[in-house]
């Protein structure tokens, strides 16, 4: 038996059907068609499926789709405004903070959450906040540089 779920994703009202056992990650990717959110582990250990759920940064593989009923979900697809990239996205590109790019959506969602919570993180704070986002390509160096640079620019803009 599938359950009907009404939710808001990136500001758009969305309705979908899912089994109560389906995760939000599954619903986003397979029911709503938003494949920008990636699955790396399915157990909350890699952060590739990071999304915002009612203002909290979560792994969408550790949320049931039915829990999204009446919630606000934000995914990587909602971060740029049409063709205008968010500063964080621009800085990831400028600093070559991605190689293969599979962890990038999750990292950008997490970085946005970090900078909304703490607009002036130290490098160490950024590294700990983002510890749940695994990247196997970059060694994190350029990611952290992109995050710190984005934080600077966002503070100046604020």
């Amino acid at each position: 038996m599938k359950t009907h779920v009404s939710t808001v994703v990136n500001g758009d009202a969305v309705e979908f059907l899912c089994s109560p056992s389906d995760t939000l990650l599954h619903a986003l990717r397979n029911e709503i068609g938003l494949t920008g959110t990636k699955e790396g582990c399915g157990s909350g250990d890699c952060g590739a499926c990071s999304v915002m759920l009612d203002g909290a940064l979560v792994c969408s593989c550790l949320v049931l789709g039915v829990e999204a009923q009446g919630s606000q979900v934000e995914t990587i697809e909602g971060i740029a405004h049409q063709d205008k990239l968010h500063v964080i996205q621009e800085k990831f590109l400028e600093h070559a903070a991605l190689q293969c790019g599979i962890c990038t959506p999750g990292l950008i969602v997490s970085t946005k959450a970090l900078l909304e919570e703490n607009p002036a993180p130290t490098e160490e704070e950024a590294r700990y906040y983002l510890a749940g986002n695994l990247c196997r390509c970059t060694g994190y160096d350029k990611i952290i540089k992109a995050v710190m640079d984005a934080a600077d620019v966002m503070r100046q803009g604020a």
């Binding site: 909350g44 952060g47 990071s50 759920l53 909290a56 940064l57 979560v58 792994c59 550790l62 949320v63 997490s110 959450a113 970090l114 906040y129 983002l130 510890a131 749940g132 986002n133």
Partner: peptide, 9 residues
């Protein structure tokens, strides 16, 4: 406990 994401839940 876990990552920032895990702490979110």
């Amino acid at each position: 406990i876990g990552s920032t994401q895990v702490q979110g839940r």
